[in-house]
Write a protein that binds this DNA or RNA. Structure first.
Lengths: 228, 228
DNA sequence: ACCTGAACACCGTTCAAGT
DNA sequence: ACCTGAACACCGTTCAAGT
């Protein structure tokens, strides 16, 4: 039986290991995610499509559905892989800042994280770390649990707001448009906006991000979860 | 000249007002937005596409690009129209709650608002109102300006997180998945998550939303914009 | 100036049929 | 069981050509 099996195996090898073309590796969830990460890094999330991945893996798009339920699940898998790069050292603000930095490179992925909350191993490690840091800081368990949600939502949304081609047309247009709108607002109809124009447009990205974290941490520590 | 103009106008009328088919109204930005709102309410944002609108307006998709730069701008126009329904009475939390309620009906639109911050008249009226309410409450102008951003981002992101078919498969799967993940987490590797399982999953939507607003308002009022 | 047909370059997902 | 060809049902955007 042993020998027979060996022969049978050999008999089936040729189709996948022809010497004239590189062996086509068997499909697998991991292989698909690997291919997705390569496309993501080279060309961005918008190219991480079932059809494109199938092409890179030398198969048809239908084949991928054996391993991945849909595009959303694929993007979630890719995101968690990226979250492996988030540093877990330092205080809450430092950890979340590295989280935002990772997502800043892929705002479209942050967008998808906002819709389908991740639950991969790296995301869980991040949640675990944040809960630990808040507990260390003396935050009550119920506020810490809800607070982690708030902090991660803020961090994720901030990254998501970055338009993909941040340095390109869209972002500059957006910024210019906002400036124009705020400046054009009639002081008679919108007195507060007119008076706040400078403040509304002030501050660098990092300064505002840091302020947001401090606002949340202070509020989380000091606000009971029960309605007043 | 006056008479000539009148005759010319009459001479051009027939092609658009044939008695045997309903007059095809001239294209316009407003008409396109009106058609978009109709499709949005009837079938959701995913059907509000250039091609679909062109079909409804009895023309080709290319024609719409005379009035609307792209799909993102179209969605922004639709969103601002919807924001006309936001109530501006009451305190900050009440105003923002009606804002969230409006967006809850169209999470996909909230998603688009997160990427391309709106700047339409109804959005500006909302910002103006919030700035006024924060000033009334004695919040410093710089904190109020940055705070409005934070509050609107939180409200928008919360609506965006709602998957479109909230009552359908996706949401239930998500919730079930989260429960499974939190429950399955090993107490040895993720002690804080295991200990916080109840808190992480507790609370109704409105209770958490309200807590988030109170956290932000407390933090905004009490956190200087300069780094400590 | 305004409008459009037609094309370019794609998508996600399903399913019957094959191995 | 795993894999896939082919199809279904769509997209956004551009551009040359027309009125």
């Amino acid at each position: 039986l042993f020998v027979t099996n060996t022969f049978v195996t050999i008999a089936f090898v040729p189709p996948t290991s022809r010497r004239d073309r590189p062996a086509k590796p068997a499909l697998s969830r991991e292989g698909i995610v690997r291919a997705a990460l390569a496309v993501l890094r080279a060309e961005g999330l918008e190219k991480v499509t079932m059809r494109r991945l199938a092409q890179d893996l030398d198969t048809g798009p239908a084949s991928l559905y054996v391993y991945v339920a849909n595009t959303a699940e694929l993007h979630a898998l890719v995101l968690d892989e990226l979250l492996g790069a988030v540093g877990l050292d330092g205080d809450v603000e430092q950890v979340l800042t590295t989280y935002v930095e990772v997502l800043f490179a892929h705002p479209a992925l942050a967008r998808s994280a906002l819709v389908a909350r991740p639950s991969g191993p790296h995301y869980l490690a991040l949640v675990e770390r944040l809960l630990g840091l808040l507990a260390e800081a003396g935050v009550a368990p119920d506020r810490a649990a809800w607070g982690v949600d708030l902090l991660l939502q803020y961090a994720t949304a901030t990254a998501a707001e970055q338009s993909t081609r941040a340095r390109d047309v869209a972002a500059e247009d957006d910024w210019a448009a906002l400036n124009r709108v705020v400046d054009a607002v009639h002081a008679g109809t919108h007195p507060h906006i007119a008076a706040s124009a400078d403040h509304l447009l002030s501050g660098t990205g990092p300064a505002r991000l840091s302020w947001g974290f401090r606002v949340l941490l202070a509020g989380i520590a000091g606000t009971p979860t029960e309605e007043p």
